[in-house]
Design a protein around this nucleic acid. Structure first.
Lengths: 197, 197
DNA sequence: GAGTAAGTAGACCGGTCGGTATAGTACGCG
DNA sequence: CGCGTACTATACCGACCGGTCTACTTACTC
């Protein structure tokens, strides 16, 4: 009864699973949950439709949860890396927002937050989606908070400020997509740096 | 024999049009564009399907644009009213965010920003949607900005701060929906009041 | 009261949706 | 070898999608 871990120790066998997850992550980020069809996911991933339900018997929703975790962990790593770079919190937070702005612009204003869209359209209708979103946001918050604490901020103040930074970044990404311009993000960055200095 | 509120002289002719718009606005706010079906809109509005295409020959998209304008104008009025109340900017901005939090909680965390969800899922794929979102956000920004200018803020600083306030409010609504808790909004409110004091 | 534009009404359409059934293949293991 | 299982592969399903059609009823005008 050996469980998974089959296949060539490297990536064989799970390759189509990963292809599903990353295709889904990309599509969810760009157009959200409801607008993303299984046909589109299957076509992009290159794997056959039947394999999808082998790897994700829970269907579209299970796949979406996996994609959210995947994107969430990726971005958490990026946040941690930026916040660990030298300079004060004002500087690193500025760098973080600049990085988000650069990524958004480079994608033709398509790649915003990979979690926000799904959260807004599906969190109210699906508790698993909501819980996953909550967990991912919380992981990002922890990274920001601990970076602020490491700079000597009071725990309570650090929590509130981390929340403001994340909220402002999310809102900035939203407004930037609506305007097709990074101006909202740079305005947010400047004001945040004022506050944190 | 038809029993559906026939032609009351005042609202004559446009009553079903308005029913379509307000039903659509409510549904877009709660679940976004792609997840909202015409069947659901038609059922809620009480009007027949055929009438929809009489009033909105452009179909779902035209209806969505009208609903976005409708919600946008409504919220613009609310923002203007709150910002005109007595007290400094720190106080009125705090009141605005408290009002958003109260509305969100009262709806069971379903009614967030009526524009954000549609923007994130559809702005990249439909220029009319994007432009409408841009216009609505801009109208809200103007209200915030002029309230800050009326308090003696420099024009440039007022613009940047209005952007931060809107971005933080949008992000706060997003995080509050993910957490099913108003804590993100109160944290954002407190930090914003600090900054504006 | 005939004519006509405005608006109502719901049956109907092809296409796509998420999901399933079932046959086939690759591979570790005895 | 051959057998079981992990996985691939595709054809197929009913439901629902956004959108269209045509017949009808009203309200106003002459």
């Amino acid at each position: 009864m050996s469980m998974s871990a089959r296949r060539d120790p490297t990536t064989a066998g799970t390759s189509s699973r990963e292809a599903f997850v990353s295709s889904t992550a990309k599509l969810l980020r760009r157009q959200g949950y409801a607008a993303t069809g299984l046909n589109e996911i299957v076509a992009r991933s290159g794997a056959p439709r039947g394999s999808l339900y082998f790897h994700f018997p829970g269907g579209k929703q299970e796949l979406a949860l996996a994609a959210m975790e995947h994107s969430g962990e990726q971005l958490r790593g990026a946040i941690a890396a930026v916040m660990a770079s030298p300079g004060g919190a004002a500087r690193t937070v500025g760098g973080l927002i600049d990085a988000l702005a650069a990524g958004l612009e480079a994608s033709g204003y398509r790649d915003g937050c990979p979690i926000a869209t799904v959260t807004l359209e599906a969190a109210a209708g699906s508790e698993p989606v909501r819980l996953t979103a909550e967990r991912v946001f919380s992981s990002w918050l922890s990274e920001l908070e601990s970076a602020l604490v490491a700079e000597g901020a009071e725990p309570e103040a650090a929590r509130r400020r981390a929340m403001l930074v994340l909220a402002a970044a999310e809102g900035g990404l939203l407004l930037a997509r609506a305007q097709r311009d990074t101006a909202p993000l740079t305005a947010v960055r400047d004001e945040l740096q004022n506050l944190l200095a």
